[in-house]
Amino acid sequence: MTMYALRRIAVSLLVLLGLSLVVFLMLHFISDSPGRAVLGPQASPQAVAAFNEEHGYDRPVLVQYVSYLGDLVRGDLGRSYKLNEQVSVLLWQNAGRSAMLSFAGLILSLIIAIPLGIAQAVRKNSFMDRAATAVSYVLYATPSFLIALLLIAILSQAIPIFPAEASQSSSPWVIFTDPRAMALPLITLTVTNVVVFSQYQRSSALEQLGQDYIKVARAKGLPERMVLTKHLLRNACIPLITLVGIQIPILLAGNLIVESVFNYPGLGLLFLNSLHREDYPVLLAYTLIGGVLTVAGNFIADLMVARADRRIELKK
């Protein structure tokens, strides 16, 4: 297991190195110079030249990249000149709220999707299975912003149960301190995840139900509940672990939509506002974080799958 983990760490570090190079080059490709991209088209050539010289953008690209890597290692993601603040500070101020919303939505969706997917597999082609599959297909084809707007129209306007706007509290624990205000954003994230996870879990469970070990367990006369919980559940959830790892950066993108619709102060709303301001240092840092989360999610998923199924470790 240790050697497998070390190999995965080495691969992840190489991917992160390539990602940093792509993000670094993006700032240079946005405009004819980083100074022009940051200061905007109205800045004078003298101001652009002074900015490039002050921040070392007039040096060779390789030297700039090495300096950029050094800044990343120190946690320096640049400075937002539109907001006159360090990008790392802006991200840190909003990361907790986004992470808590994503984590709560992920856990709640797994709690619903895993038993739902297994129940569909066990009752394949039943009315419940067909109805759940049809609803999943419809919701999967529905954009998340439309789901959010429908929830607002129904549960906030037609039946005023929840407020249309999310809580504006700066606390990352706002989901627990003000659950009513966070209900609609959480429901939106949960619904969009459940439709994916449940169908994936259904397919995995169907595959496992046809395996010999399930037939042997049933032939021994074990109760169906024990067959499903003790034998089927663990093996059927292994492919879902990989999907959850891949889904982590997608949650970041989903937060962008949910946070913008419900005006929730998190990383997604910060990215959207930065896009309107053309605040490139923040946009590039957000892109970098998305890539890091992708690599981290896949790395964690690989380790969990290898722990659950030792055959994976032996093959690689």
Results as ranks from 00 to 15, higher is better:
226 M>I: 15
200 Y>R: 07
245 G>M: 07
218 R>E: 09
219 A>Y: 05
238 I>A: 08
208 Q>F: 04
228 L>F: 04
211 Q>Y: 06
244 V>C: 07
211 Q>R: 10
205 A>F: 03
202 R>C: 09
212 D>S: 15
219 A>V: 03
215 K>N: 12
229 T>N: 06
205 A>H: 04
241 I>W: 01
225 R>L: 15
235 N>K: 06
200 Y>E: 11
211 Q>G: 07
228 L>W: 01
236 A>M: 01
214 I>F: 04
203 S>I: 14
213 Y>L: 05
199 Q>P: 15
209 L>W: 02
239 P>E: 09
220 K>G: 01
209 L>T: 01
203 S>V: 14
246 I>R: 08
208 Q>V: 08
226 M>Y: 15
207 E>L: 14
229 T>Y: 15
248 I>S: 02
230 K>D: 13
219 A>I: 04
245 G>N: 13
227 V>T: 02
234 R>S: 12
219 A>H: 10
199 Q>S: 15
244 V>K: 08
205 A>S: 06
230 K>V: 09
203 S>Y: 05
235 N>C: 04
211 Q>P: 10
200 Y>S: 13
202 R>A: 07
202 R>S: 05
210 G>V: 07
241 I>V: 14
207 E>I: 11
221 G>N: 03
227 V>I: 01
247 Q>F: 15
231 H>P: 01
201 Q>D: 12
231 H>D: 08
230 K>A: 10
246 I>C: 10
215 K>E: 12
239 P>F: 09
214 I>K: 02
210 G>D: 10
240 L>K: 01
208 Q>R: 04
238 I>M: 14
231 H>Q: 12
235 N>R: 14
236 A>K: 01
207 E>G: 15
227 V>S: 00
238 I>K: 02
205 A>E: 08
237 C>F: 08
245 G>E: 06
230 K>R: 09
228 L>P: 02
225 R>V: 11
240 L>D: 00
215 K>M: 13
218 R>D: 10
243 L>P: 00
206 L>F: 00
244 V>D: 12
229 T>K: 13
216 V>T: 09
247 Q>W: 12
240 L>G: 03
234 R>I: 06
202 R>Q: 12
235 N>E: 11
215 K>Y: 12
206 L>C: 04
204 S>V: 00
209 L>A: 11
225 R>P: 02
239 P>I: 07
246 I>M: 13
228 L>I: 15
229 T>P: 15
221 G>S: 04
246 I>H: 12
227 V>N: 00
215 K>P: 12
229 T>E: 12
223 P>R: 04
224 E>C: 03
225 R>W: 07
204 S>T: 02
224 E>L: 05
219 A>G: 08
204 S>Y: 00
222 L>K: 03
217 A>P: 13
235 N>D: 05
245 G>V: 15
248 I>L: 11
248 I>T: 02
213 Y>R: 01
205 A>R: 04
204 S>G: 06
223 P>D: 15
240 L>Q: 02
237 C>S: 14
199 Q>C: 14
203 S>T: 14
199 Q>V: 07
240 L>T: 10
210 G>F: 06
208 Q>H: 05
238 I>G: 07
200 Y>W: 10
218 R>G: 13
206 L>E: 11
227 V>H: 00
218 R>W: 03
201 Q>W: 06
246 I>K: 15
246 I>A: 10
234 R>A: 11
231 H>W: 04
200 Y>L: 15
226 M>H: 13
202 R>P: 02
233 L>V: 06
